[in-house]
Design a protein around this nucleic acid. Structure first.
Lengths: 219, 219
DNA sequence: TTCTTTTTTTTACGATCGTGAAATATTATT
DNA sequence: AATAATATTTCACGATCGTAAAAAAAAGAA
């Protein structure tokens, strides 16, 4: 007979969902270190200590699994961005940018896989669906731009705001997503805290002056 | 008997070298669209219209081939950078940055594979030799910084110059190397000329003011 | 020409890939 | 406990991978 609810009788979430999350977690770890076509189902299985065939029971294919993961990661990024922008409207430019960077760097420390997955696959968008669900990546930029416009309304033309937002996020994604390589370049290998401070200082150095202009505080 | 010179009697370069270049050209095309582990010898063979086994006669392994290509590409980038910086010392900041960007964008139009190869593999440097010869990538940054310091000496602390140089090149590499994706984000898919203009404008918008500061023209 | 060297293709091996079906184990229901 | 449903593993298939050796072709030297 058909089970009416997987949760019936048991405490906690149904096993189906728990396993899906285990798989997603393992997939996140693997796709954070290998571009889509280089990662394999068997790598994910090893990372999560389950057989690779189990994935197929919960996700119909590698492409669908990656698509689901990418969607999750991108939604998470948009939400993190929204959260980091909260309550910045009243602050002066230097306070706002410092606050935003501190928050976002915290987010990245807690969820380093997200930006890595983006960075590893962003350059692969040659033709539509060269990687599954790649549309999500450009969408992150457009969605965070809308959030930015609403959270920090500034008296400046929309295309200037877009230019600022786009450059800001591109550079930050690159700094954090490819951080391990950047640290090597800067001679900070392993010194994550130093690198974090460097990123904050550099982003501020570069983006505070134009932010002042955007906010009409040109000085 | 041993041939004293492959060139003997024939006009032009020896076949050995010609084939090596054919292989490198095909490899460049393939590695410009696939990260190291995703690209295959057979792809390269198809791209160059030769059997994949031929590669092994001229290069001992996939890793060595990629290493050779990466070294070539990185040297080419350093040289392009040097060439683009030539004669900029006397110019005012806005002229210098415009000139540099025009030149470098020209270079990229002629050799789009170079920055693509960098961008596709830069985030893979987890551990030493996750990709063969990855050291070349950080080296490009350090070498171009030295070139920059010599070509455009400015009265500013070395770490500020380094910060500027590093951010500038990171963003530019990202804009151009992942251009196809960036154009999608900006709604400029296929409009390469528009995107090029956008890149120039954005880079100028962002990097001209701090360059003025570096050059002591703070306004 | 004939012989030797160099270059290229053919063929093959073991490994890994994504996927699928079958077999087994686990859990829920009666 | 018996039965049904769900979850997981085992096994297998065809394809592709990098590499290797042998065979064939092309080129050069005599």
């Amino acid at each position: 007979m058909r089970k009416t609810s997987s949760r019936a009788g048991g405490r906690g979430r149904p096993k189906r969902e728990l396993t899906r999350e285990r798989i997603m977690k393992a997939a996140r770890a693997v796709f954070a270190h290998h571009p889509y076509h280089s990662a394999s189902m068997r790598m994910i299985g090893r990372a999560g200590k389950f057989d690779h065939a189990l994935i197929r029971y919960h996700f119909p294919s590698k492409a669908k699994l990656f698509g689901a993961l990418l969607a999750e990661v991108c939604d998470e990024l948009v939400e993190a961005n929204r959260s980091c922008l909260e309550g910045l409207a009243g602050l002066p430019p230097d306070g706002a940018i410092a606050r935003y960077l501190d928050r976002f760097l915290d987010y990245h420390d807690d969820h380093p896989a997200a930006l890595r997955i983006i960075t590893l696959n962003i350059a692969l968008a040659d033709r539509p669906d060269a990687i599954p669900g790649y549309r999500r990546i450009p969408e992150v930029l457009t969605r965070t731009r809308e959030t930015f416009e609403q959270a920090l309304p500034v008296p400046a033309p929309a295309d200037e705001v877009a230019r600022y937002h786009y450059a800001f996020n591109n550079l930050l994604i690159n700094f954090l997503g490819a951080g391990s390589c950047q640290m090597i370049i800067l001679g900070m290998k392993g010194r994550d805290a130093d690198y974090r401070a460097w990123v904050k200082k550099t982003m501020t150095f570069l983006f505070l002056p134009p932010l002042k202009k955007l906010m009409g505080e040109s000085g």
